[in-house]
Design a protein around this nucleic acid. Structure first.
Lengths: 196, 196
DNA sequence: TCGCTAAGTGAACATTTGTTCTCTAGCAAT
DNA sequence: ATTGCTAGAGAACAAATGTTCACTTAGCGA
């Protein structure tokens, strides 16, 4: 059961539509989106995509995307090294962004980054930090801490048995908490979006 | 115009349903999900949520969640001691990450980054670049280009009408393509994962 | 060339959809 | 109490839904 080229194209169109609207359209709309003239053809396409594992149905028979639907192609080559052989573009594998970045959704929060105190660590203002909430961390972890009632992102370090928060920017001072260090969570990932 | 407590509850139920199925149910199903007996009540709830900015409709009048729908306030979490002023910034719910980063799934590839030639731009070895494949780009864009049969990620710039590729690391030279510059795509996002 | 298969068309169908209307119950303010 | 207001119930409706059927077309191998 080879994945048909045409169906892959249909899947791409569906993914684009879903990315724009966060929802799958009705059959009538699908005719336009997929470039088909009849709803019965749409029905067949959807059933094929379900058999391929990209779609599923709710108990109410509504079409919904599966985890496979959200997988993206991950280029096998590295940048800049590597041998492109880009004609084939072979060796792309599936990659689910959400599952990769957020293994524990219930304990994870996305925190917008403000300020440039971690600029040398490649964390810029406007980035979004993926924060796993927990109370314990190790020296070397990048953490979200609460200092003077404000959230701040810094590298956690230890000096003579006491924790301190180290910025990654020489223009900022090291923070040595007076009492207990209040930890919001550990930064486990980073998201950045370019352009608007 | 106060945000009703009941509506907030309805919104939560909707968010739960959406988290489970990645789709909004039909009115009949919504009656069960929201605990209402009549579809007209459902209609009113949805319209209220639209006015509050959590829902919208496609041109085909289908209900879809808006960006607000996916937002989750930091304040919703228990923060140990104190009320940090997080300046009204809000987190985004986990499953929206994918849609946030990848507006055009079918033209997007994820490319692992190797090397430190873009380190000053906050792009490190091991990061994953979100690359939108296209042939045109503007000066200032970070692009994935093909130079000497190798993929490379650099900032695109123009000098005297000719394109050149500028690294974000003084240790690397500017690349001035001899002939035509071959573009693989434009970097529209970045993903980084800390620790394993 | 002949068939075979799969993909797409177009019409018909009973259901279901979402909307609109009127009506009732609860709540708040006076 | 009475008045107003809103949330929700319930019925009625035209319109749209998704499925099924028989039919056409295109591609492929023998």
């Amino acid at each position: 059961m080879t994945e048909s080229t045409k169906d892959a194209e249909y899947l791409g169109l569906l993914q684009n539509y879903y990315a724009a609207w966060h929802s799958l359209p009705s059959y009538n709309r699908l005719c336009e989106v997929l470039g088909l003239a009849s709803r019965s053809a749409v029905s067949k396409v959807l059933n094929r995509l379900r058999e391929a594992g990209f779609l599923d149905r709710t108990p109410d028979a509504m079409w919904v995307p599966t985890a496979h639907f959200f997988e993206r192609s991950l280029a096998a080559f590295h940048v800049p090294a590597g041998t492109p052989d880009h004609a084939g573009e072979a060796g792309v594998e599936a990659f689910a962004v959400d599952a990769y970045l957020i293994p524990k959704p219930s304990h994870t929060t996305l925190v917008p980054v403000k300020g440039d105190s971690m600029i040398d660590a490649g964390i810029f203002s406007g980035d979004i930090a993926v924060v796993e909430q927990r109370v314990a961390a190790q020296a070397g972890d990048i953490v979200v801490a609460i200092v003077d009632n404000e959230f701040t992102i810094k590298t956690l370090d230890m000096e003579r048995g006491k924790y301190l928060l180290r910025p990654a920017n020489p223009a900022y001072p090291v923070i040595r908490p007076r009492g207990q260090l209040e930890l919001f969570g550990v930064v486990v990932g980073l998201i950045r979006k370019y352009r608007s």
